[in-house]
Amino acid sequence: MHAHLAGNHGCTLRPIDPFLDTVDRYDFSYIEKTVYEASQAESPLGHSIRAALQVIEEAYERFGLDGVTLSFNGGKDCTVLLHLVAAVLSRKRLTQQDKPIRTVYVTYPNPFPHVDAFVDVCAKRYHLDCVAIPGPMRQALQHYLDISHPKPKAIFVGIRRNDPYAENLTYFDPTDEGWPSFIRCHPIINWSFKQIWDFLLLLKVPYCSLYDQGYTSLGSMENTHPNPDLKTTEEGRYQPAYMLENELHERCGRTTQKK
């Protein structure tokens, strides 16, 4: 993998995070302890963590361990969701040494190597059964259902209220007509951009290194740029994503509405 890569936006990408050299399995009991402790805080973040944990717990109660899959693409939101899922699996004693977490990774054309590398390491560290399928999303999910045994009844999705077409979503929603049939589960639907970053930083959860280079929303190399709000006075340098002040500008580095 090349140490430096350049996209069509003219920004030179810095080396992929050295975290990716580590593939040791995470201690889910530690994740459980730290996440559930954070959920007890009397703060907006504590409330949001509690709500998300309750939704995840309900999903496993309703659909069972084999009935739920996680949609994971290496982005900040689904990284938070994955960490929350790991905490619940440990709390409910659903983790098994030989039973990985069912995961589907719908890939973009011309993806960032940083993202693919991050997903690969997360698959090892969180013990994911990660099936990578090229998009578009509708066809990819149908293919995933077709090849899955048993077929999942629900899929965790790391979508939030300010994402496109998410205004009216609830914690549990059936897919729209014409889409593969399953329940979409949205545990972090009401989280803000700030809460996503507060969670990642508070719990020291590793995330894709592109976010430290000014990217605030990730897609393919063709449609994703560093956020102009984070540009510094140094040529080609940007502040990290968590420094973004106006959350409404989260997608200002994207040239399409796909996520």
Rank of each mutant, 00 (worst) to 15 (best):
M1D: 05
C11R: 13
D21E: 15
F28S: 06
Y30G: 01
K33E: 14
T34Y: 03
A41E: 15
L45E: 07
A51G: 00
A52G: 09
V55S: 02
I56S: 03
I56R: 07
E58M: 07
Y60M: 05
Y60P: 03
R62A: 05
R62C: 07
T69S: 15
G75Q: 11
C78K: 10
C78M: 12
L89S: 01
P100A: 06
V104C: 11
P111A: 10
H114M: 05
H127F: 15
L128R: 01
C130H: 04
I133E: 05
P136A: 09
Q139C: 01
Q139E: 13
L145I: 14
D146M: 03
P152L: 06
K153F: 01
G158A: 06
R160H: 01
R161C: 01
N162E: 13
D176W: 12
G178T: 11
R184K: 14
H186S: 07
I188Y: 01
I189F: 07
I189P: 08
N190K: 14
F193V: 15
K194C: 06
Q195F: 04
F199Y: 15
L200N: 04
V205I: 15
V205Q: 03
P206W: 06
Q213I: 12
S220K: 01
M221R: 09
T224F: 05
E235L: 06
R237P: 00
P240I: 05
M243S: 08
L244M: 02
E247H: 02
E247D: 09
R251P: 02
T255N: 04
